[in-house]
Design a protein around this nucleic acid. Structure first.
Length: 408
DNA sequence: GGACGACCTGC
DNA sequence: CAGGTCGTC
């Protein structure tokens, strides 16, 4: 049976992009409640579905590594279709002689990948797009920190928290599930939603992976079925919103909201059942390119009051529309056009599961942390730096060891 | 504009 | 109660 990929095992093919941990922290970004579909399948390895493919991601200090699994049936067909269209010839990227000498060939190793150069470039572009790597997060952190001492304090530890650019449909219907709910339960619900209504892609170890359901799958499903799966009153919202989109706007409507102004997109979303101000702001920020959208929930309201001495609206019992507007404007004035990105950093830093990161005083990983392994990683990094970008690397930690010995 | 209760379920 | 929304007053 196919297994989850691990970078150090050398059993799967990995590629990489240059990307520092200051620009991206997978552990924070993928588990802070933006997307609910990534799981840590091995230490520092995150597996999830994105763009119709299953990915395992991991990172070293300067690189983002990724492995893509072959889907059950579709991929070969897709590939040949594409080649017929573009006339690009096939090339074998991972030749036997590229295998590290002495590395044992695993039984479960995949057949050598048959991939066109265009596929590879397309996959890299999907990653860059999903993580919005064109946005220089370090520069933004510096700007936010310059005008906001509290942000500077938090940002020192919570580096690399970056906004994902999610699929609008997945984002919308995931966030319809978030009302009156908490992350762990939301994760389970979204998973069951994909299991029940999404197309199966393939199975790794004991886990099956599915695409997020299409609008029509969501619309055609009846409420009772979803209620049985534990969605509660949200079952009706999911079905009705999907139906409303298809009936009154059409299948491309959501994607089209990427190119309309923030407030217009937000109002459009709010016409859907189960979508209020908070969910609409989440969808705007996380899938519709509205970096200025600042989703205000009870949690963010607490942050505003506690850390920013935010007083107006203190009399109110719950978050009113006016408080939404006022706090949103407050943060937009403080942080500027990427206010939503900054908010996600503070939100992440406030999550219970990340509190332990605050405990250890943040030593710049200098002496103590430099164990033998990280030295070898550094050596490994040096050795491949020149050829890293867009080069297929099939390498294992044992290879790093070898190179380390050469270097030192 | 703001307050209130209901809405599903599970920890 | 929990990372809300809706209908009603």
């Amino acid at each position: 049976m196919a297994k989850h990929a691990v970078l150090s095992s050398g059993a799967k093919m990995w590629r990489s992009l240059p990307c520092t941990k200051a620009e991206l922290r997978l552990d924070l970004t993928l588990a802070c409640g933006q997307s609910f579909r990534w799981r840590e399948t091995a230490e520092g390895h995150w597996t999830g579905v994105m763009g119709g493919r299953i990915w395992t991601l991991t990172q070293t200090e300067d690189s983002l590594w990724y492995h893509i699994y072959k889907n059950k049936e579709s991929s070969l067909e897709d590939g040949s279709d594409r080649m017929r269209r573009t006339g690009v010839s096939v090339q074998i990227e991972s030749k036997p002689e590229n295998r590290i000498k002495g590395a044992p060939k695993k039984d479960d190793e995949e057949p050598l990948a048959v991939t066109s150069v265009q596929d590879t470039e397309e996959e890299k572009e999907m990653l860059r797009d999903y993580f919005q790597l064109n946005v220089k997060l370090q520069d933004l952190y510096r700007e936010w920190g310059d005008t906001d001492p509290h942000f500077r304090h938090i940002a020192h530890i919570f580096t690399g928290v970056r906004m994902l650019r999610q699929d609008p449909t997945e984002c919308l219907f995931s966030f319809i599930c978030t009302s009156n709910n908490h992350i762990s339960r939301i994760q389970g619900m979204v998973e069951r939603l994909c299991q029940a209504l999404g197309a199966q892609l393939c199975q790794l170890d004991q886990t099956s992976y599915y695409n997020f359901p299409s609008l029509s799958a969501l619309a055609d499903n009846n409420e009772a079925c979803l209620r049985d799966l534990g969605f509660g009153y949200r079952a009706r919202f999911l079905q009705q919103s999907a139906k409303q989109i298809l009936d009154t706007h059409g299948i491309h409507w959501l994607d089209g909201l990427r190119s309309v102004p923030y407030l217009q997109a937000r109002d459009a979303l709010r016409t859907l059942p189960g979508v209020g101000t908070k969910v609409a702001d989440c969808v705007c920020l996380m899938s519709l390119d509205k970096a200025e959208a600042v989703p205000i929930d009870t949690h963010v309201w607490q942050i505003a009051k506690r850390d920013y001495n935010y007083a107006s609206g203190n009399a109110q019992k719950s978050i009113t529309d006016k408080i939404h507007r006022d706090i949103g404007d407050f943060f937009r004035k403080l942080w500027g056009p990427y206010a939503g990105w900054a908010q996600s950093v503070l939100f992440c830093a406030d999550l219970k599961k990340f509190q332990k990161l605050k405990e250890t005083p943040h030593q710049k990983h200098s002496h103590k942390e430099e164990t033998g392994e990280s030295e070898m990683r550094a050596a490994c990094k040096k050795s491949k730096r020149k050829t890293e970008e867009s080069k297929t690397v099939k390498i294992s930690m044992s290879a790093c060891h070898k190179k380390a010995k050469v270097f030192f």
